[in-house]
Amino acid sequence: MLRFFLIRILRALVTILAVLTFAFVVLRMSGDPAQVMLGPDVPQESVDAFRHAWGLDQPLWIQYISYLKAIFTGDFGVSMRDKASALQLVIDRIPATLELTIPALLLKLVIGIPAGVYAALHRQSAVDRGVILAAIFGFTIPSFVMGLLLVLIFSIILGLLPSGGQDTWQHAILPILTMSIGGIGILARFSRSAMIEVMGQPYIRTASAKGMNWADVVWRHALPNAAVPIVTIVGFMVGSLIAGAVVVESIFSWPGIGRLLVVSVSNRDLAVVQCILLVIAAAMVVSNLIVDLMYGWLDPRLRSHSAH
């Protein structure tokens, strides 16, 4: 059991290190930071002084070590545009993103899972067909098309809701809808197939055959077993709470992390991009870790196969 946890935690740490290394390598490959920062018309002495000041004249591995040191002491560099701490800029934007992604996640969970389970228990019913149809739309309509269609219908044609900005709670409705509609379908489809698979297992037949109450069969035997695959996809959705809004925030001019990322990419504000990259990867790794640990709790069999 302890070995299972340790291996998972070690893998999470290695993944974070891989993301850090990726950011370092890409940053160094994209050109000399001295040239990028100072521009082409600067005398050689200033470039040399800059390189010396920032340690860019050191061998690459020393730069890598000092880069890691800086990250672990919480120094993520300074935004080239605002001259403010990159980390602070990023942290300031997180609440706005969570205002959209947490309600969207709740909608997905509260509608998606029950709809999927219901559809699995009532095959070929109207709900079942609806779930399949919604899942297909969830997979095939990209969020930018969904967002623009909702704006076209609710803001332009019906004039009911604002199309962008963050002033009132009405402003959050369309972005949250855009993010949740597809996800509800996907989660419902996922829960449906997990549930259908469990309902075909011999222990369900045994439980029904011994005369157990149908509701008890579903609640005590089927649902706990269907939980493992559902937790996987929910974990993925939790991990993308911070990253999940890149496109949607851009459509609705919502001042969150996603919008900050797109703007920083357009401005090539590398410190901010790198910082967002790490925050997003950390969120993803932590939620994957939690999911892995929950597997151990939900399904005791997985503890013994610790490596995979």
């Binding site: 891989a18 990419v265 997003i280």
Partner: peptide
């Protein structure tokens, strides 16, 4: 497997945005 974990940890859209930021 570590590379696969890395790829799974970083949403692809975010990774692409980072690469495009660095390289144009």
């Amino acid at each position: 497997l570590v590379l696969a974990d890395f790829q799974a940890a970083l949403p692809f859209l975010v990774m692409s945005l980072a690469v495009l930021a660095f390289f144009g």
